[in-house]
Amino acid sequence: MTAEEDEDYAEYVSASLERLRRAAYLLCGDASRADDIVQSTLVSVYLRWSRIRTVDNLDGYVHRILVRRYVDESRRSWARVLLAWRLPELAAKPPASSEDADAVRAALGTLTRSQRSVLVLRFICDMSVAETAAVLNCSAGTVKSQTAKGLTAMRALLRDQWPTSTGSAIASRVADTPSELEEAGRQ
Score class of each variant (00 low, 15 high):
1 M>H: 12
9 Y>E: 09
10 A>P: 03
12 Y>G: 13
13 V>L: 07
15 A>F: 04
17 L>P: 01
18 E>K: 10
20 L>S: 02
20 L>Q: 13
22 R>H: 04
22 R>E: 10
24 A>M: 04
30 D>V: 13
31 A>G: 08
35 D>V: 08
40 S>N: 13
42 L>Y: 08
43 V>W: 14
44 S>T: 12
47 L>Q: 09
50 S>N: 04
53 R>I: 08
60 G>A: 01
64 R>H: 04
64 R>K: 02
69 R>V: 09
72 D>T: 03
74 S>P: 03
76 R>K: 12
82 L>S: 13
84 A>Y: 15
86 R>H: 06
90 L>S: 15
92 A>R: 15
97 S>Y: 11
98 S>W: 13
100 D>G: 14
104 V>N: 00
107 A>M: 05
109 G>V: 07
110 T>C: 04
115 Q>I: 14
117 S>P: 04
117 S>L: 13
122 R>T: 02
123 F>C: 04
123 F>T: 01
127 M>R: 11
130 A>R: 15
130 A>H: 11
131 E>G: 12
133 A>G: 13
138 C>L: 08
138 C>D: 03
139 S>Q: 13
141 G>K: 11
148 A>I: 00
148 A>M: 09
153 A>P: 00
153 A>E: 15
155 R>Q: 04
160 D>F: 09
162 W>Q: 07
163 P>T: 01
163 P>I: 02
163 P>V: 00
167 G>H: 13
174 V>E: 02
180 E>W: 15
180 E>N: 02
181 L>Y: 05
182 E>R: 15
184 A>D: 00
